[in-house]
């Protein structure tokens, strides 16, 4: 009896030790190179750390500076416009495409492949490719618009103060459509057919069936993917860095580009860390509000 008891106690103990041992190789780099720096980064936001100097504690002074920094608010505004418009347009376009791909149309296979291709491309290449499309003299877009007689002379899309941001948003939508479309398509395919058939028997039109059957069933998927898209978009860096480097005149300087410049061009590490913390807080607040509203409506 005691022997059995003892064995019962040691077996899980040995299992736990074994588990820790197996997990250690993965745990160490994650702790050293991401959990640690994360905590260090939050601590840095409370210091005046700069290029060569030893940091000293300044409390919330950086956050005070941030609130009165016009450049930050400009960048923040652009970041919100970018993230919200890319997320919304991406969602609308992807839902449309997913609905089409869910139909029994010809060329559906080709369209599905095309819809996934941007996913497989490095962000730097996507940026370069669109620079070729937007190129003022050798670009596809100007050539097409001129042939259609819509513009008289070439437009320098990425260097125009009012056109640069919309042009960059289009690229953001193009680059992010695959993930959203694939997720929504999977969601559509899991809507039970019986629900549609029942609604059809009751004489509901296509539009009513979409509104009253498909959308409510899709709701959790929609909430999940739009939230993720929003976070990914506000954290976007590479694509816009390659397209415009934040120009012209800061018109496309997303918060991440702003923070990157503060840290690695000017060496204000503490201030840039503060920016990072502020963005996390804003993202969590926006997401919290959105998810809370969605939950309340769902109930």
């Amino acid at each position: 009896m005691t022997a059995a008891h003892a064995r019962r106690r040691t077996a899980p103990d040995r299992g736990r030790r074994e588990m820790l041992l197996l997990m250690l190789p993965a745990l160490v780099p994650v702790l050293v190179f991401s959990v640690g720096p994360l905590i260090y980064g939050i601590a840095l936001s409370l210091t005046d750390a700069q290029g060569g100097r030893d940091p000293s504690f300044v409390g919330l002074a950086n956050f005070g500076d941030l609130l009165t920094d016009g450049d930050f608010w400009g960048s923040f505004r652009i970041g919100m416009i970018w993230a919200l418009s890319v997320t919304v347009v991406q969602f609308a376009a992807s839902l449309g495409l997913a609905l089409l791909l869910n139909q029994n149309l010809r060329l559906r296979g080709l369209a599905r492949v095309l819809a996934v291709v941007p996913w497989a491309m490095p962000p730097v290449v996507i940026g370069l490719m669109w620079r070729l499309v937007y190129h003022p003299n050798a670009g596809l877009l100007n050539s097409v618009l001129r042939d259609l007689g819509l513009i008289g002379q070439n437009i320098d899309w990425l260097n125009d103060f009012s056109l640069a941001l919309p042009a960059v948003i289009v690229v953001g939508v193009w680059a992010g459509m695959p993930q959203t479309t694939v997720v929504l398509l999977a969601g559509l395919q899991s809507v039970p057919k019986e629900l549609h058939e029942a609604a059809q028997m009751d004489g509901a039109s296509v539009w009513r069936r979409f509104w009253n059957v498909t959308l409510p069933q899709l709701r959790p998927v929609i909430v999940a993917i739009t939230s993720l898209d929003f976070v990914w978009n506000i954290n976007q860096f590479s694509l816009v860095y390659v397209l415009t480097q934040g120009g012209p005149g800061g018109q496309t300087r997303l918060p991440m580009l702003f923070a990157y410049e503060e840290a690695f061009r000017y060496g204000f590490f503490g201030y840039a860390a503060t920016l990072g913390v502020a963005i996390v807080v804003v993202v969590l607040a926006v997401l919290g509000l959105y998810l809370w509203r969605q939950m309340r409506e769902a109930n």
Partner: peptide, 17 residues
């Protein structure tokens, strides 16, 4: 969490490390 965190917050301390 690692999927949604802004890289900038990690990359500065990581660079210093």
């Amino acid at each position: 969490v690692s999927q949604v965190f802004p890289f900038i917050l990690i990359i500065i301390p990581l660079f210093m490390v």
